[in-house]
């Protein structure tokens, strides 16, 4: 029973983890509660659905195109909406409201284009695979692997390359970074494309596992954001582990009480932990 619980946490936590990492990555250059990140998850899922259902492209091609589209969408939104607003002195709340407006537009557009019915991406990825003592659908296994790989690669990029140094410099102080000769816009572009790519991937995997509907973006993003914030910023371990922590807290609630108390238990656990570690559960205290 415990083993089974741990596997569930692994599966769910990996799913949240991808979104948490993407959110953290984006926050390093554009920190605010960006609701359009949720839209991008939906784009990944619906892009794949649309290209396979209506354009009859092969699945692999559809996935690649969708994810590429997501990367571009994230970069374009950042470049033409949020960065200009920020430069004009907009506060985080204004950015939140602007992203809310855009999220509403995107959700309504998806609804108009694809209808409101709940769908699922079909195909081989949805089928079970046997791993000895238990079996799980291939897509869930892929999600876990993808989460670890993405974590590894992004961590490498952000903390062990020169590019990563530039990103962190920008995060510390955009003005200073600019003065010292960094091309802010280029960095922001690349980082937002990376974030969009991960979100698109998350959307595709979710599409195979738990399906798609026009309202899917918001809730998924919310989970990822919570995982990232609770885990703590400053290193990528925060979002990565925070996502698993979120999954664990949720499942503990279901296991010990009932599904109805899931959210309450999860949040009470967070708050208790945060009281003792207000810098984020998986971060060291600031020097």
């Amino acid at each position: 029973m415990l083993l089974v619980l741990l596997i569930n946490i692994l599966i769910v936590g990996a799913g949240y983890g991808l979104i948490a990492i993407a959110f953290a990555v984006m926050s390093s250059v554009s920190p605010f509660f960006n609701l359009t990140l949720g839209s991008i998850i939906a784009f990944g899922a619906y892009g794949t659905y649309g290209l396979t259902e209506y354009a009859h492209l092969p699945m692999a091609v559809a996935i690649v195109i969708s994810i590429a589209f997501c990367a571009c969408a994230a970069a374009l939104l950042e470049r033409f909406v949020y960065t200009p607003l920020r430069t004009r002195g907009a506060s985080s709340m204004v950015l939140l409201v602007a992203s809310l407006g855009l999220y509403t537009i995107f959700e309504a557009s998806i609804h108009l284009a694809f209808g409101p019915q709940y769908q699922i991406l079909g195909g081989a990825l949805g089928q079970n695979m046997n791993l000895g003592i238990f079996s799980m659908p291939k897509v869930q296994f892929i999600t876990i692997v993808a989460d670890f790989i993405v974590f590894g690669l992004v961590n490498l990029l952000l903390f062990h390359t020169f590019f990563g140094k530039m990103v962190r410099a920008l995060n510390d102080s955009a003005k200073l970074a600019n003065i010292t000769g960094l091309n802010n816009n280029k960095i922001i572009l690349i980082v937002s494309m990376l974030s969009g790519l991960i979100l698109g991937l998350s959307g595709v995997l979710t599409g195979f596992d738990t399906g798609l509907e026009p309202t899917m973006g918001f809730n998924l993003l919310f989970k990822g954001m919570i995982g990232a914030i609770i885990g703590g910023s400053g290193s990528l371990y925060g979002p990565f582990l925070g996502a698993f922590f979120l999954a664990a807290a949720e499942n503990v609630g279901v296991m010990l009480w009932a599904s109805e108390w899931r959210d309450l238990v999860a949040f009470v656990i967070f708050i208790i932990f945060l009281i003792f570690r207000p810098q984020g559960i998986f971060q060291r205290k600031e020097k």
Partner: peptide, 21 residues
């Protein structure tokens, strides 16, 4: 859906034109 779309667009425009509210 069109009403939602227009509402969203108006929100964005308002923020774009007057970011301080």
């Amino acid at each position: 859906q069109l009403q939602q779309l227009i509402y969203g667009a108006l929100l964005v425009m308002m923020m774009a034109f007057r970011p301080q509210g």
